[in-house]
Structures are given as C-alpha cells and as structure tokens.
Write a protein that binds this DNA or RNA. Structure first.
Lengths: 197, 197, 197, 197
DNA sequence: GATGAATGAGATTTCATTCAT
DNA sequence: CATGAATGAAATCTCATTCAT
C-alpha cells in the first residue's frame, strides 16, 4: 500500500465503509469488515467517529456534497436548458457507472435502520431532484420547453436513470450505457421540447 | 382467536414477515418480531421454513407470482398496446400505493445480505420489465408505436413509477397520485405514439 | 447439581449475580462471570432481564424486601423498645454474617455507575434506618428512653453494625461476633435507657 | 497555562485521579477522563506510573499519609483522652465534609477490583482505628474511662461517623453536621466516661 | 403441530496500554 | 518529557436456531 494511502486513517475508514456498505447495506456492514477493508483495528474507528451510525451519516453527507458540487460545476457550463439537462444525464451516468459504491448507498435503499432512507432523501436525493426541477422550470419560462409538471418530470428522470444503472450494476447487459443515455434523453426531450414550426 | 385465523399458520408467518421486513429490510427483521406479529412462537417458523433465509425467498417468490398474476389479468382486458400500458401504470400505482409492504421489499433495496437483490431482480423485476417490453414491441409491430428501444423504455417506465412511489411513501407530497400517473403517461406516450397525419 | 436448583433459571441468575457482584462490585461483575456462576449461557440473562443494569436493580429490590420482611417479623415479637432494638441487632448480625453477598452489595458501596448508591440508599438503607428510628421514638414516648435525636442514633447504630461486619468479612478477627454485639448494645443502651432510681 | 501549573505533572495526575474516581469508583475512572481532568495526554500517565492500578495504589497511600499526619498533629494538642477523642471527631467531620473525593475512595467502597478493599483497610482504615483504640486504652488506664472493649468501641466510632457522613454526601439532610457531631460524642462518652460521684 | 427457554456465535463499543514522533 | 493515534482484548447485548416438553 503506497504511503500516501497510509497517512489519513479517517479517509481510509470512510472509503472502507463505503466499499463494505455498498455490498449489502449499512446494517450488514460490520465494523470488523470495515476495519479489515481499511486495514486497521476496529477500535480506531471510534477514535474518529462516535459510533457506526455517525460514521455512515458522515459518509452520506460528504459524498452528497461531493456529488452535487461536481454536478453543478459541470452543468453551469451549459447554455440552454436542454444543454444543461443533457449534461446532468451525462454526468449522472459517468459518476454512477464509475463509482458503484456511493451510488448504491445513496439511491439503492428504501429502508435501513442504520441510515434511514429519509436522511438520504433529505440530504441528497431531494436537493438533486429540486436542482433538476429548477432547470426544467427555467426551460419552461424561456419557452424552450412545454408547460409541464417540472417536479414530476424531474423525479421521473431520476427514476429512469437510477433504474437503468441498477440493472447495469447487477450485470444485466441488455444495452450499452450510450444506448441508455440516448433513449433517456429521447424520452425526456420528446416531452419537453417545443417543435419549431 | 377465531379458528379461521388459527388454521393457516404458514400464511400468517409469511404475512408477518412481509410486514416486519417492510420497516427496515430483511436483515433487520428478527424472528422474534415476526413471531410477535404472527402471534405465534419463534420455534414454529422452523417447522414451516428451513431458515429465515428460506422464509424470505418464499415471501419474494409468492408475492412476485401474486403481483404478476394480477397484473396480467388486468392487462389482458386491454385491446391496443397503449391501452395495455395505461392499465399497467394504473395497476402499478394502485398496487404499490395500497400495499406498502411488498413494494418496499421487492423494489426498494439494492442490497441485503439476507435476500440478495439479484434474486429479486431475477424473480420479479426482470420478468415484469420483460412483460412491459413485450407489449411495447407489439405496439411497434402493429405500427401503433415508433421504432424505439423497447427494453430501455420498459426499464425507464419502471424506474419512473418506482421513484415517484418511493417519494410518496416517504411523505413527500409534491403531487397527487393522479398527477403523477398523468405525467408518467404523458412522458411515455409522447415518445411512443405515432401522431396521425 | 440437584434438579431443584436446575429448574428456576431466573433465580439462579439472581443468585449468581449477587455472588459475583459481592466480590468486586456491580460494574466489575461481568455477564460472562455471572453466566459461569449460574452455569448457563450469557444470552439467557437477557431473556429474563432487559439489561445487566435492570438485573442488578432487581437484585437490590428483591433482597431489600426479603431482608426488611424478615426483620420486621422478628422484631414484632419484642415487647419493649429495648427488646426490639436488641432483636434488630441480633437479626442484623445473624443475617449479614451469614449472607456475605447481599450485605456487601446493599451497604458497602457509595458509588457504582451500574447501581448508583442513591438507589440503594432509597430502596433499603433509609427505610431500614427509619424503622429503627421509629422504634427509638416509641421508646422515648413511653419514657423508656431519654430524649435523644432518634434519627442520628438510628444512623449511628447502622454505621456501627456495618463497620464491624465489614471488618469481620475481610478477616479482621479482633473480636467475636458475640463480643461485638454486646459492645454495640452496651454503647446504644447506655445512651438510651433511663436508669431507674 | 501558567508555569506553576505545568511543573508538577505527577501531582496533577494524582489530583485528577482522585477527582474522577470519586464519582464512581476506581474501575469506572478511565485514563481518558483522568487525562482530560489533568489537562494532559493519556500517554504521560504511563511515564509517572506503571499502570492505572499502581496510580491508584499511590493515590490511596499518599492520601492516607496526609490524612493520618494531619489527624495526629491535631490530636496531639489534646490533654485528656476525652479531649483527644473529641478532636478526632471534629477533625474527621471537618476533613470528610470538606473533601468529598478522598472520603468516598477511602471509605465508601467495600470492593473494587482495581484497588481492593483489603488494601484500603490495611493502609488507612485499620491504622486509623488502631490509633483511636490506643487513645481509648490510654483513657482506661488513666481511669478516665470505663473498662470497655476499646477495639470494638473504636470500630463503632468509625462506623458511626462514616455512615452519617455518607448520608450527608448523598443529600440526606435530616440533621446538621453539628447535631451529628454532638450526638456521636454523646453516644461515645455516655459509654466511656466514668461519672464522678 | 406448537412452545419458548436456552444456546452460542457475533456485533458494537470501551479502554488500558504502547509507541512513533 | 509529552502527545495522541493505534491496538487488541474484553464487555454488553442481539438473534437465528435448536430442542425438550
């Protein structure tokens, strides 16, 4: 293991927690397993975090911030609403097909006693959805898009992307990532974009 | 206790298992809690099932069969592909906004050591998706629908519905069920249906 | 082990808890040790008690009731206040030189995070002291005793008895139990009893 | 931090150990808590003491010496045996109602795996008792006192004082310190002092 | 068939002690 | 001297599973 990785034990624990939790959920992720993954003792986890519970809340929070931060930077480059939505879709698939761990933890569970879904919903999913909703609303105001229920469209977009990615992660190779992205964009924009006469 | 309730202990255990697991997943559902919910002893569970693991596999399987059975009965009444898809959407929202338990177990989790997601995927989700895909393909062949990637559209439809229902279940009341159904149908049919000249 | 002892596991756990706690306090009494002493698994302790803490509160309460019940039965036989106090002293030494366990737990500790002294004080010590105080007050009213501060005399009697018993328990054999009892009675009655002219 | 506080780290650790142990015993006193109280690192404790165990043995020993030293200085001023015993009682209440910490550690516990009661008994309690006993014996020889069992009387005096102080420490305010002292002296001297004809 | 007491493996958490800096 | 990150053993508690009744 390179020395750079050795140094920050806290970071190593967080990474290990993500990796382990991704496999079968927070509750199933044991401190023993996390310690093995981080190559440290179980005890040291409690030097950095007050409890396993707090560790996972921290994991969620840090990754949510990381994800949304990167997303917004990427999207701000886009000029039109359509352009921005495309960037969201591209970034979402890029991020979550690369990092299986975080994805599964943030989106995949609807109930876990250790890190309850409402917390994940509040911390990452709803802010994400509201961000998409906001862009759609802008598109409507600029008359780029039809008058639609931006909130439900945003939720539906998240649902589409998530579900297709889950399938990919579990090895269902019906289609390539590019085919999926194209079809999702097609579905979305057919409903949104005004056809010029 | 009326005798009718006494007789089918097995069924009572299955129902109790669903109810308990719905709250925070299979792993968190204890046999003690299931026994309390079913108003029986913990020991008797092992008379009907070899293990807690096997119990939950059964729960999944039986509910998958129940759901798909009801769905197909409902859908067969539809004449056109569009009509059938509408019936699927109506039934899906009806079923999962009524029965929170099963929904959460079948769709809500991407990983649980006790009943692994691949099993859920194989047993219920993919058959469901393939059924939808088949209807879309029929619509394409009958020239009712555009030439689209039926597989990805089907997956996306499932994702949309699931995500919006999860929000409802966790108390995010941005929209009514009817508004959601309408918007989902709008999204879907804008992409599918050929506009008549 | 005779079968009679095998039967009541709850009782065995309570007895074992007393025996183990007597050696080095509640906090030091581990469930592992209690289980070994009771010849059972650690798990079963939690079938009968919600926690180690609750187990010890129960131990205190049950023994306090047992002790005070026996004491009062014994004392009620006495006619005069002096007679009753003598019976208390006799019973106290009989009880606590026989049952080392309970004594140490009820009187010996002034602070233990597991079963805080205030609880022991409230549950057993103060009721005991007030009972003695009451008898002294009766002796004063019947003009058998001098006008004294019955409360402090009662506390002092408890202190004398306790301290001498502690010494005995830890093997300091300066005197016999009978010598101690006689001297304690002498100290007490010299201060209480009116000398007849 | 002023240099004066910096210099005697050892003393600071000892004081902190007393303060922390007073709250719920030696075993419950953690090195982490002691370090926080002494405003130093946990590690440095092991520079001055071989182990937590040894630290507490030192605490006991040093405080015992301090207490007995002060006591004897005070008592030597007394001329008669009665005068000396009064000084002991006054000093005892003065010392232990002022310094709750040490009192609880030295007298309050009958068993703690970390610093076993026998050690406390040997180091402080029995020397103290023998000192009282010696004064009573002197009183007997000088015909100031009756022929009594000086050993048991001494133990009983310690028991009386201790028990009343424990009550005070735990907030049972039945009487004032002065009332208690008076009653204890009354009890003691009624039994000891020869009434002059 | 049915019960629930009992087991034992394993989970989280605590803490005295060590050691590189 | 001094620090505090790190360790590892042990403590409390949980829970699927078994088995005598």
């Amino acid at each position: 293991m390179p020395e750079a990785i050795m140094i920050d034990m806290r970071k190593r624990i967080v990474e290990a927690a993500i990796a382990v939790a991704a496999q079968s959920g927070f509750t199933q992720a044991t401190t023993r397993e996390i310690a093995r993954e981080a190559d440290c003792s179980e005890g040291i986890i409690y030097h950095y975090f007050m409890s396993k519970h707090e560790l996972f809340l921290e994991v969620i929070k840090e990754n949510a911030e990381d994800f949304l931060g990167q997303l917004k930077m990427e999207v701000n480059e886009g000029r039109t609403a359509k352009d921005r939505l495309e960037r969201i879709i591209d970034f979402h698939f890029h991020y979550f097909t690369g990092k299986i761990h975080i994805f599964q933890i943030l989106f995949g569970k609807s109930g876990d006693a250790m890190v309850p879904f409402p917390y994940v919903l509040k911390t990452i999913i709803l802010p994400y959805q509201r961000y998409i909703e906001h862009i759609i609303t802008q598109g409507i105001h600029s008359e780029e898009f039809h008058q639609v229920n931006a909130n439900i469209i945003a939720s539906s977009l998240l649902g589409m992307m998530q579900f297709n990615i889950i399938k990919l992660h579990f090895g269902v190779k019906d289609s390539t990532v590019d085919e999926i992205k194209d079809t999702v964009k097609y579905l979305l924009f057919r409903s949104l974009i005004k056809v010029k006469p």
